[in-house]
Design a protein around this nucleic acid. Structure first.
Lengths: 141, 141
DNA sequence: ATTAATTCTACCAAATTAGTAGAATATAAA
DNA sequence: TTTATATTCTACTAATTTGGTAGAATTAAT
């Protein structure tokens, strides 16, 4: 399951995609029903990953840096949830040896989990913010 | 990522699959390197879901109730991690409306997440304990 | 200067995770 | 029938994560 934070991030990105140009945090918070203070920290995180940029000051706000069609669920997932793999030793972007692993090369779980990660990654990379904006019906073709 | 508990459960199930018949908790704990007390609670949980059964007393132990080829990662995931879907409103087995949802029917996130769940479920159902026992090379065919 | 926005620093309560301790119960064997 | 050893049940606990909030500092347009 996604954390609330990741879900808010998706909602915020959808809102930014639907409102091209500069948007105030306050507007996103109200229209997308996200606690404003919490949203601020989420936007900063998105900014640090170059998905959005901001302008400070009274006429400031946030805007998308990437095409909505280029923002995949895989990308968002990795920012807010970390590894897509089910075990650290099967991760591409967050590889870590498992704490209790004896021999990684012969690990039966790891081999299976790498296959799971490969498939899951395909799925998460196939879903984009643009698709969510367009809605389900436009996926048919 | 899987919790440690789920990972231990998989290790325990692999061990039981490789050692047909009655196996003592102590043996599983030592050979699969799982903290014994923690393992006990995991085995009880597997028992309550009818994946294993036990015999009490001095000559007791645990044994598999299901064919290793019938124990899918999806099944294990649901027992120890809960929903496979990324949001509660997209879950089959653990459906719940999202706390902040305005209109489920028109929710752009839900539509996408249902597609993710459908694909993810296929992946998790395609991986079984038997496959992990056999090892990666035997998956080629 | 005032106003209104982003940014930064620091909290905080509740839930989850990864266990442990110890008693109770069941059963095989001496 | 005692003893040894196994499962089972009840109750804790420390550390981490989650989902926020509060308030001050900074930035920039009017």
């Amino acid at each position: 399951m996604l954390t609330q934070k990741a879900k808010y991030a998706i909602k915020a990105l959808i809102f930014l995609a639907q409102n091209k140009g500069l948007v105030k945090t306050k507007d996103i918070a109200e229209k997308a029903r996200i606690p404003k203070k919490f949203l601020e920290s989420i936007l900063l995180e998105l900014k640090s990953h170059k998905l959005v940029a901001s302008i400070q000051g009274a006429a400031g706000g946030y805007y998308l840096l990437e095409e909505p069609s280029g923002i995949t669920l895989a990308l968002i997932y990795r920012i807010f949830e970390g590894p897509i793999a089910l075990v650290p030793c099967a991760s591409m972007n967050f590889y870590q040896p498992c704490s209790d692993c004896e021999d990684e090369q012969s690990c039966q779980i790891r081999a299976a989990m790498i296959r799971v990660r490969e498939q899951t990654l395909k799925v998460l990379e196939s879903i984009t913010i643009q698709q969510m904006v367009d809605g389900e019906d436009k996926q048919q073709a």
